[in-house]
């Protein structure tokens, strides 16, 4: 028997988080969309038109009439923006591939480690995720700089005579992304490799496969879903990354997260910043949908 009070409580449990997300997630996004259709103006707030509720219905109509796609047209015309989108995509693709190259062997090693080691190894992979992202990126500034540890090491071994310029280049950005997102790649791959039935590999060996052949014919295809999940988990946040390009990248590193930040904080052009955000989101929708399909397929396969 549920009484009146319980039904009320039930409603509240639904309504409170629902309204919270509506007000602080959906509505703000609507505002971004609206401002992206407005024009820049030297005023407070720095855009027109603003909706004046006292003008009533006709005021609302005027307001709608003044909205336009000018900022979006501007984004397609100014080379800076589409170059920044393309370069974000390029950096995200390259660093995702590099993360996979670094992460797969680690996940593979973990899955083949003795059973009693594995909880500790898991913990060691997760621990950096709990430490500040900012600090992990910052740690590389001291390593990659001209007089940094990497150059000291390379010159000590005699591999280079002159210090290399790594900090403030795209290379530093790749290293930063690989380093900070590595746990996101390792964990899903490890999860699929751990479940892999070892008897399949024995069967492959019995049928005359070498270890390398068995890896490509058995292990690699069976860990595909983990690889795909890991790649999306690195790729999606890497596109909109801000901290890594601004600390490790140089003035020539173009990434859209940084452009948006500068458009907003330095140029104070809110309408253009909003339009940049809207397009970034439209670019992200595709990988997000693909990622969710992959997750769904994996869940269905497990059932």
């Amino acid at each position: 028997m549920t009484g009146w009070g319980d039904r009320l409580r039930g409603r509240i449990v639904v309504a409170v988080p629902y309204l919270w997300l509506m007000l602080l997630f959906m509505v703000p996004f609507g505002i971004v969309l609206k401002i992206s259709l407005s024009d820049y103006a030297v005023s407070i707030p720095p855009y027109t038109p603003t909706l004046d509720p006292s003008a009533g219905w006709s005021g609302f109509q005027d307001f709608l009439g003044e909205l336009d796609f000018e900022n979006f047209v501007w984004l397609t015309q100014d080379a800076l923006y589409w170059k920044a989108y393309l370069s974000s995509l390029k950096i995200a693709v390259i660093s995702t591939a590099l993360t996979l190259l670094v992460g797969y062997p680690i996940a593979y090693g973990m899955a083949n480690a003795p059973d009693e080691w594995r909880p500790t190894l898991m913990m060691l992979v997760i621990l950096p995720f709990w430490t500040s992202f900012l600090i992990r990126v910052y740690a590389w500034m001291g390593i990659l700089s001209q007089e940094g540890f990497l150059n000291q090491f390379l010159m000590w071994t005699g591999l280079t005579a002159e210090p290399l310029t790594i900090l403030n280049t795209n290379t530093a950005v790749y290293i930063g992304i690989v380093y900070t997102y590595l746990p996101f790649m390792i964990l899903p791959i490890y999860a699929t490799l751990e479940k892999l039935d070892a008897s399949l590999l024995e069967a492959a060996a019995d049928l005359g496969c070498t270890r390398v052949q068995a890896f490509w014919l058995v292990t690699a295809p069976l860990s595909k879903s983990g690889v795909i999940a890991g790649c999306f988990l690195v790729f999606i946040p890497a596109i909109g990354e801000f901290v890594i390009p601004s600390l490790l990248g140089g003035s020539r590193t173009l990434m859209i997260g940084k452009v948006l930040w500068e458009e907003f904080f330095s140029n104070r052009d809110w309408p253009v910043a909003s339009a940049v955000a809207v397009i970034l989101l439209m670019i992200l929708v595709i990988p997000i949908i693909l990622f969710q399909r992959n997750e769904q397929k994996q869940r269905e396969a497990e059932q």
């Binding site: 629902y18 602080l24 703000p28 948006l260």
Partner: peptide
Amino acid sequence: LFSGMIYAPLVMPEVITGLSLLLL
């Protein structure tokens, strides 16, 4: 819509979340 709003912030770039909340 509700489940969408739960999962969307997880994949939303921080710059967009920050910008939209500030404008709100």
